[in-house]
Simulated assay, not measured.
Amino acid sequence: MRVVLLGAPGAGKGTQAQVLVERLGFIHIATGEILRAAVREQSPLGIQVQAMMASGQLVPDRLMIALVEERLQQAGDRPCLLDGFPRTLAQAEALTQAGIKLDQVVHLAVPEAVLIRRLSGRRVHRPSGRLYHIDYQPPRVADRDDITGEPLNTRPDDDEATIRQRLMIYQAQTVPLIAYYQQQALQGRTRYVALEANQPAVAVSAQLLALFPQQTA
């Protein structure tokens, strides 16, 4: 079982990925972790990656696909969740051309206005890293850390202008994957489903887990 979660920043991919890992034993294959592991293990691919990263180059899609394929082979028969790849239409097409089959593509759909509210409402206590949200997990005293009483801050990437820029990049780069995987599903090459993720996380999790009855049995 190989699964990809699609969704904009703030859609809840991280939360739902953790559900699949903890409840169903999915292996979480994150591109950042793959790159770090390859470099750490000094595999032939890792040596190439290390040289590129050291010189400030972006890791090309062909190499990322080779790393993903290597990690999937290491996972054997265990279910896997791809995180952060594919991110663009070119990557998705290259993944298909490489013969790497995805069993399920899940789109976490959330209106843009809700995404902006979710992201702009986050607050952090910088010394400890404790996170809050003004709507979903508010501190006991507004704008104050529950433990120390010190001020909470908004992270630089959570101001509204930055959020809108991130959403524009998502629209341009990742939204085309939705139509691509819908077409793949029509051709019987994968399964595609859109979940209404503008609801409590536990409700989204229940819908997500229902997609994998064999794993939950």
Results as ranks from 00 to 15, higher is better:
Arg189Ile: 01
Ile163Gly: 10
Pro200Ala: 09
Gln183Gly: 13
Ile100Arg: 09
Val204Leu: 09
Arg144Gln: 10
Gly99Met: 03
Glu22Ile: 04
Gly84Asn: 08
Gly129Thr: 13
Ala51Asp: 14
Val49Pro: 01
Asp158Met: 04
Gly76Ala: 09
Lys101Ser: 12
Leu82Phe: 08
Asp103Ile: 12
Leu5Phe: 09
Phe212Ile: 06
Ala51Cys: 07
Thr190Ile: 03
Gln42Cys: 00
Glu70Lys: 14
Arg191Leu: 08
Leu152Arg: 08
Gln42Tyr: 00
Leu24Lys: 12
Arg130Phe: 14
Tyr170Gly: 02
Val106Asp: 13
Gly84Pro: 06
Ala8His: 02
Glu22Gln: 15
Ala197Gly: 10
Gln73Thr: 13
Leu5Gln: 03
Thr190Glu: 02
His133Thr: 07
Gly188Thr: 08
Leu115Ser: 09
Met52Glu: 13
Gln18Tyr: 02
Tyr181Lys: 02
Asn153Met: 07
Thr148Arg: 06
Cys80Phe: 00
Arg2Val: 11
Glu93Arg: 13
Leu167Arg: 11
Glu196Tyr: 05
Leu81Pro: 00
Thr154Pro: 02
Gly121Lys: 01
Gln16Lys: 12
Arg191Lys: 14
Ala66Gly: 00
Met53Pro: 02
Ser43Gly: 03
Arg144Tyr: 05
Arg144Pro: 02
Leu35Trp: 06
Asp157Val: 02
Arg71Gln: 15
Gln50Arg: 12
Ala30Asn: 14
Leu45Lys: 03
Val204Ser: 05
